[in-house]
Amino acid sequence: MLSTGALRAHLLAARLAGTVATSREESLRSYRLFAARDPRVLLGLDPEWDWGEGDLLRLMADRCGVSGDPAHVSGPDVIDPELTVAALEAFAGRLRAAVAARSPVLFGTGHPHRLLGFYAALAEAMSAAGCVVLTPAQGTSVDMATRFGVRPHSIDYVGGVALVREPGVRPPGSATGAHTHSPLPVRIALGALAEAGGPLPELVVGDHGWVCGAGQLGVEAIGLADTDDPALFVGEAEGRVSVVVPVDDAVRADYYRPLIRYVLGRARLPDGQEWL
């Protein structure tokens, strides 16, 4: 099992934490848009509290480790690796509890090019441990907003993890998909489960709209978030998201493999070979 010290060293070396590639300008822009209730950064969350830019900056300094100085407006942003390690511990604890209860689980990502392997390894391990990994609404069409306007996408699953892809771009089951912040896919997936009368997830694991959209509907959700994703941290502060791991969500996919080993070890789950 990967030690805490080795994990911390890897986070810094791979720039998953410490100085990250996400810029301060990107982060501050997201905080401004969130304060204005722009749906592009709300990710399906309907905040209960009033969040001004200063409130968000203080929250992100506390939960993520970014600079709390409003005069710091440019350059790379920062994630405190100690906060990442602590959140990964809590994240693993929620997986361990779900396995103990044999809870149905739903995995979904808006970052399939980077994070698919991370979630797929967890899905594989939880399935092997007796949890039902749900795959609802396979092939269902979702109208997604893109830079070219609204275009149809479809929900697909790779390794038990939901993603969306433009029809015809890749065959179903291929390990690619669209980058999206939208909560529409998780809403459709949960709606399909409710309509079918089957088990609903007791835990949703993912990022972006998958986490915020599920949390807003009252389903326990945990996930990963970057410095420019304040919605997940607001959801955590307001009690609708259980655990958020602060981490750069757009580095090379293989850089997340040590995080997989660490989480599986802390959750007392076996390593899967396909995604490691």
Rank of each mutant, 00 (worst) to 15 (best):
V234G: 03
G159S: 11
G177H: 04
L28K: 00
A86H: 10
V66T: 08
A97T: 07
P70W: 14
H111C: 08
V142L: 10
A120T: 04
G44V: 00
A128E: 13
P258T: 12
G213E: 11
L2Q: 03
Y119D: 15
R40P: 02
V78W: 15
A13F: 02
G68V: 05
L43G: 00
V241K: 01
R252H: 14
A196Y: 04
Y262H: 15
A194N: 03
E25P: 04
L43K: 06
L224I: 03
E26D: 09
P39W: 01
G5Q: 12
L224R: 06
S30G: 07
H179M: 10
L83C: 01
P230W: 10
A71S: 14
R266S: 13
R165Q: 04
T176S: 09
A90Y: 01
Y119H: 15
R165G: 01
S74A: 13
V150W: 07
H153V: 07
A120H: 01
A9P: 07
P39M: 07
Y255K: 12
W275M: 07
A137C: 02
L59C: 01
Q138Y: 02
A101Y: 09
R187C: 05
P167T: 12
P104D: 02
G173Y: 08
S74G: 06
G272M: 04
G206C: 12
L190T: 05
D69Q: 06
A6R: 08
A194R: 14
R240V: 15
A196E: 10
G168M: 11
T84S: 11
R94M: 11
R170N: 04
R187A: 12
G160N: 12
R58N: 07
E236P: 06
T180R: 06
I188Y: 07
L134I: 09
E89L: 13
S23N: 02
Y256C: 03
R257Q: 13
G223E: 14
G235W: 05
A35F: 02
A13M: 06
A175W: 08
R170T: 08
L276C: 10
L203Y: 08
P47F: 00
T84V: 11
L16F: 01
A125V: 10
D156V: 06
A71N: 13
I155H: 04
A17L: 02
A61W: 01
A17Y: 01
R15Y: 02
W210D: 06
V211I: 09
Y119F: 15
G110N: 01
A250D: 13
G108E: 03
R24T: 13
